[in-house]
Structure formats: C-alpha cells, structure tokens
Simulated assay, not measured.
Amino acid sequence: MKSLEKKLGYTFQNQALLAEALNHSSYANEHRGSGMCSNERLEFLGDSVLGFVTAEFLFCTNPDLPEGDLTRIRAALVCEQSLYEVAQSIDLGAHLKLGRGEESGGGRTRASILADAMEAVFAAVYLDGGISAASQLIHRVLLKREQEEVEKRRDYKTALQELVQRKPDQALLYRMAGEEGPDHDKTFSAEVLLNEQVVGCGSGHSKKEAEQAAAKAALNALEE
C-alpha cells in the first residue's frame, strides 16, 4: 500500500482504514467468517466528505454564481465518471481486493467500483487525519482541475472593464506588442493600457489569449 500512499500524497497512521477502503463487498462476503468489513460504510461517509469539501470550494471560488449553478457544477464534479477518472489517475484498481467473480468480470476497471472505492479512500483519510487532510487530498486529485477550468472560463477583459468603470473618464486600450514562432505555433504578446499607461502584459497562442493574459495581469496589479 506504500505505492498507493505515495500517489495519494498521504501516509496513514492507521493502515487498517486504508485496507478497509480497498475491500469490495464481494471480497468481504467471501471472507465473512473473518469479520472483515467491506468499504461500503466508508463510501457512505466519503460521499458526504466529498460533497462538503466540493461545496465549500465552489462557494469560495465562484462568489457570483447562484445556487442552481453551484449545484450543477458540484454534481458534475462528484459524479461517477469524475471519481472514476481520479481513481484511474492513481491506479486505484490495482490495489482493490475483489471477490473471485468480480475479479474475473473485470471489476478492477469498472467505473462504479472504482468511483465507490475513491469515496471510501476520501473517508479513510478523513477518519485518519481529519477534514484538513481529506480536503487537501480532494483538492489535489479532483478540485485542482476544476480551478484550472475556472481560470480558463473567466473573462478577464470584462472583469477589467468593470473594474475601471467604477471611476469616470477611464480609457482602456489593448495593443499587440509582438509575435514570434512559426505560423503553426505562434506566440503573441499583448499590452493593456489604462489612460495611456501600460498596466498589464501577457502572451498566448492567439491574439485573444494574449489580451486575456494581459487583462489578468492588469487586474492583479490594480487589485493590489
């Protein structure tokens, strides 16, 4: 399990919690006499831990989104497919304990089994290290990707325009500062000027990307 802990970026004090998180019900049923527990109870708890951490993340990073949009995004983040992709990224299937029937039926790659096990792992980390440890793990393996998507979706030019319009007689202007590279892989540079003074510079693989990067730099500078 050391290799799995390395991929999780977390070392368990109570190894039994991680072991339980990896026990599929089919395996526990085959070893019923030993008193072994499946990961189903941990899965139940992990679902709530994941839901809370994700809701807090979305609430803090999307201050302008209404409840309906937050609910929709959270549902997409914690869905079976999303958890399945996270489980695949850490090769969780290789560490599962399955019954003979599930093993022969391809259970190690089944989306539902991997997604449930991922929630169980989140719960195991929560029980072992508290909500801070669980939150760090969930952010690292799942929510970091959403933050990157949030950054991509944000319209920095509009945000900058709204910021400067709070004062009268403010003039924004974007201008291209250069380009380099072959035609199939050009990099453009842009500047944004506020009242004829450069307040931000940025680059991108299109003029639009360069202007957005310049606007982001300007926003950061002006908000400071």
Results as ranks from 00 to 15, higher is better:
residue 114 L to K: 00
residue 107 G to P: 10
residue 152 K to D: 15
residue 59 F to G: 09
residue 63 P to M: 08
residue 62 N to Q: 13
residue 143 L to V: 05
residue 104 S to K: 12
residue 149 E to H: 12
residue 114 L to C: 02
residue 111 A to G: 02
residue 71 T to E: 12
residue 95 H to M: 07
residue 62 N to S: 14
residue 149 E to M: 14
residue 151 E to I: 10
residue 101 G to N: 12
residue 109 T to G: 06
residue 124 A to G: 05
residue 136 Q to N: 11
residue 56 E to H: 08
residue 75 A to Q: 09
residue 75 A to C: 02
residue 76 A to H: 12
residue 99 G to Q: 01
residue 69 D to W: 12
residue 89 S to R: 01
residue 62 N to G: 08
residue 115 A to V: 00
residue 128 D to V: 03
residue 77 L to P: 01
residue 73 I to R: 10
residue 76 A to E: 14
residue 148 E to H: 13
residue 144 K to F: 10
residue 68 G to E: 08
residue 82 S to R: 06
residue 56 E to F: 15
residue 115 A to W: 02
residue 137 L to H: 01
residue 67 E to P: 00
residue 120 A to K: 02
residue 111 A to N: 07
residue 61 T to H: 15
residue 110 R to V: 04
residue 131 I to V: 14
residue 96 L to F: 02
residue 133 A to W: 03
residue 122 F to D: 03
residue 88 Q to D: 11
residue 113 I to Y: 00
residue 55 A to L: 13
residue 136 Q to K: 15
residue 105 G to N: 13
residue 137 L to M: 06
residue 78 V to A: 01
residue 73 I to H: 07
residue 120 A to D: 08
residue 124 A to E: 10
residue 90 I to V: 15
residue 120 A to M: 03
residue 119 E to M: 13
residue 134 A to E: 12
residue 131 I to A: 03
residue 94 A to H: 14
residue 162 E to W: 07
residue 96 L to M: 03
residue 85 E to L: 10
residue 76 A to N: 13
residue 79 C to W: 05
residue 153 R to H: 14
residue 104 S to F: 05
residue 88 Q to R: 12
residue 130 G to Y: 06
residue 133 A to P: 02
residue 97 K to P: 07
residue 144 K to G: 13
residue 136 Q to L: 08
residue 163 L to Y: 04
residue 78 V to F: 04
residue 163 L to C: 01
residue 143 L to R: 05
residue 56 E to D: 15
residue 112 S to N: 13
residue 55 A to E: 15
residue 85 E to T: 09
residue 103 E to F: 13
residue 122 F to T: 03
residue 153 R to I: 09
residue 142 L to F: 04
